[in-house]
Write a protein that binds this DNA or RNA. Structure first.
Lengths: 115, 115
DNA sequence: TCCATGATCAACCGATTGGTTGACAATTCC
DNA sequence: GGAATTGTCAACCAATCGGTTGATCATGGA
């Protein structure tokens, strides 16, 4: 179900709403990284960056695994796919309605019974 | 550019991270709605709901247009499409890597130079 | 063995969030 | 004109967020 009240989407979209975290995710596309490696591009304390990784973890977007004294992180695609497929609901909309939009606003609202 | 530091994605994903706002967006798929109509399903003050509409507006996800004493809202697909195409970057990832993920975590990290 | 490294944790801070209430403005209807 | 409807605005509140610092802990390398 791709329902609007799906609580797990809250966390996924929230996690994606921060540019620091999006950059982390993008770097993880190239393969696993340690927390320190993920933190390196940012002028930020390690603890701060590790918090971001924690958010990504709790959102289910990355998996952390301790290996010795370092923690390796890998991208988990499932939740990203969930967010993607949520938005997919609207693909039809922006294909079909792109031009109709202006009219709906400027003229009378004719859309209420047009599902 | 579908870059991680795109500031407008911040607002879009942030707007999508709230279930109230996702429900509003989904109802707008069927056609334009007034602020009151959007507020109706929720046990929340009108002012509260109107704030959510404001967030959606500032994120570029809906367009508001005052018509008489009511404000009509319509879905604007462009930014939704932007978010969708951002996630599209990863479609390749979850296609190609779905099975590789477990290995990357359990075994040595072999992914660093595999873009 | 000693020390530097990698990471987490707890406490704290200012800013933002989601929500409320109350006042207000504009429009519509009688 | 007067009253009800629709919506915004400002102020406020508790909770959360993004970030810091300092302490701690385990591990790895000299």
């Amino acid at each position: 179900m791709v329902d609007g009240s799906d609580a797990s989407l809250d966390d996924v979209f929230r996690a994606l709403s921060d540019p620091t975290r999006r950059v982390m995710i993008e770097r993880l596309r190239a393969g696993p990284r340690t927390v320190s490696e993920l933190a390196e591009p940012f002028s930020m304390s390690l603890a701060g960056a590790a918090k971001h990784v924690g958010v990504l973890d709790r959102a289910g977007l990355v998996a952390r695994e301790r290996r010795g004294r370092e923690v390796h992180c890998a991208l988990r695609p499932e939740r990203l796919a969930a967010a993607h497929s949520y938005l997919e609901q609207y693909a039809e909309f922006w294909g079909r309605r792109l031009d109709a939009l202006a009219d709906l606003l400027e003229r009378k609202d004719d859309g209420k019974e047009t599902p």
